[in-house]
């Protein structure tokens, strides 16, 4: 009988049936997935850079009415000049924010050990180390309490602004936040499983211009750079996480092509490098290959050999138009990861 249906109707019907029958199960597992909109107990800037041309301004704000402390970890994922692998060097520091207090620092300067503007000591967040030139990596901060153990206070929001000196271009993205959602056992293993903290996304949807597609308004070619960071990280044993990513990209004609890519620790690369480094025009993400200006790329992390708990990733992208003028591009998320990720903080000693 369904053969007589038009294809569109058939698909709609199938989907509705799926919703109808699946929702009693799936709706009950509605999770508090990672977000960029609401305050969280973990805040995450997936791309922080300080090099000859670029610097990053970091803003963090306490949205609650009480004082909080933060344990922050800078992770340098820049390529090792000898091996080409990410360095994965970790620097941690602690700061404190009073009620509703915002703070800001520049990656290349940090914050000094004492207030430089004459404010009382207790209103100074604390020492933030400056980053040396050549840093390309991430920053994660976790709300902790007086005992320096993780706290369940969803207090943090933040933004990062990357500024290019030559072009003056600025790109600003909101920090990702993980909400404390249930019982927090206050140990140094943060479970991103929707029971202790929000889970990482099951699917990331990137709505983007194909590489070198003409900008509809200015006709200048648009290119996209993507940054991937695995959600799981073991800062105690200093073991970087490897995740395999599967890409399905759909053009405006609904045609589908796919690719895959492996991320260890940190990856920052042009979109076309995912599947073609030598000749970008052969990439499934290139305008010459796709023939349409925009595409929807769905990214699904899958477990790999090197990690036990989970394989989630987060992503930010940057679009460049004309002479290096860039904007940050925030992906959309679908669902929570089926396998929980973990962040293992350094043990006290």
């Amino acid at each position: 009988m369904l053969h007589a249906l038009r294809i569109g109707h058939a698909r709609t019907t199938a989907s509705l049936s799926l919703v109808f029958f699946a929702c009693p199960v799936l709706c009950t597992v509605a999770g508090a997935e990672i977000s960029t909109d609401q305050p969280g107990a973990v805040i995450w800037f997936p791309k922080v850079v300080h090099d000859a041309d670029r610097d990053t301004i970091l803003q963090v704000s306490n949205t609650t009415g009480g004082r909080i402390s933060l344990l922050c970890l800078y992770v340098n994922g820049a390529p090792n000049p000898l091996t080409g692998e990410p360095l994965w060097q970790v620097i941690d520091f602690q700061i404190a924010l009073t009620r509703q207090q915002p703070t800001v620092w520049v990656a290349s300067a940090g914050l000094g050990p004492r207030p430089s503007d004459g404010r009382p000591e207790d209103l100074h967040p604390g020492l933030v180390p400056p980053l040396a030139e050549g840093f390309l990596g991430e920053l994660r901060c976790v709300v902790i309490d007086e005992g320096e153990v993780p706290s369940s206070r969803n207090a943090l929001v933040g933004e990062a602004t990357i500024i290019e000196r030559t072009s003056g271009a600025v790109q600003k993205y909101p920090a990702f936040t993980l909400r404390s959602v249930g019982v927090n056992n206050r140990d140094n293993v943060l479970a991103l499983d929707d029971r202790e903290y929000s889970s990482c996304p099951r699917i990331l949807v990137l709505n983007h211009f194909y590489d070198q597609a003409p900008d509809p308004a200015t006709a200048s070619p648009v290119s996209t750079t993507v940054t991937f960071v695995p959600c799981s990280a073991d800062f105690d044993r200093a073991i970087p996480t490897t995740t395999n990513l599967l890409f399905d990209t759909f053009n405006e004609f609904e045609q589908r092509l796919s690719a895959s890519f492996e991320v260890t620790c940190f990856a920052d690369l042009p979109l076309t490098w995912i599947d073609s480094r030598a000749d970008p025009t052969r990439s499934v993400f290139h305008f010459a290959m796709q023939g349409t200006i925009v595409g929807q790329t769905r990214i699904r992390p899958v477990p790999t050999r090197s990690i036990k708990p989970g394989s989630g990733v987060i992503l930010v992208a940057e679009e460049s138009r004309g002479r290096g003028r860039t904007t940050a591009l925030k992906p959309h998320f679908v669902g929570g990861a089926l396998q929980g990720d973990v962040i293992i903080l350094p043990s006290a000693f």
Partner: peptide, 19 residues
Amino acid sequence: GFNPANNAAGDLAGHATIV
């Protein structure tokens, strides 16, 4: 929405770029 993976919460997403 039609997608059970997001609890049928809706299927539209978008961006605006002011140029």
